[in-house]
């Protein structure tokens, strides 16, 4: 069982307290009615399905209840970082470099 750092609680806690919530950085369009069918389908259904480092959302559902973002390697399950919702996407190359140290 992996352990996950909640950026809101500031603690690293067992996976059991968290729930996966899909790919991160997919913004719901501000004016959905102006979206074409293709754009809306892209927003609803299309996901990266990354093999390797993946930007994704988690919720500390049995803790503070907050949604946050994480970069996790889908092969090894390693978490490179977690950060608050709304914060910019961290630079992957830098993250991987830091992780190698």
């Amino acid at each position: 069982m992996i352990q996950i750092h909640c950026p809101y609680c500031g603690e690293t806690l067992p996976e059991l307290e968290f729930a996966y919530a899909g790919e991160a950085h997919i913004d719901r369009p501000v004016s959905p009615t102006e979206q074409t069918d293709e754009e809306w389908a892209e927003f609803l259904f299309m996901r990266q399905n990354v093999k390797g480092p993946h930007f994704e959302r988690w919720r500390h559902v049995h803790g503070c209840g907050r949604f946050f973002n994480a970069v996790r390697n889908t092969i090894t399950d390693r978490f490179y970082t977690t950060y608050k919702a709304g914060e910019p996407r961290p630079d992957l190359a830098t993250l991987l470099e830091e992780d190698n140290k």
Binding site: A19, A21, R57, R59, V61, F67, A85, G86
Partner: peptide, 11 residues
């Protein structure tokens, strides 16, 4: 509740 929190917190 999870769905409501999701939209409230992130959208």
């Amino acid at each position: 509740l999870n769905m409501m929190e999701d939209y409230l917190q992130t959208e």
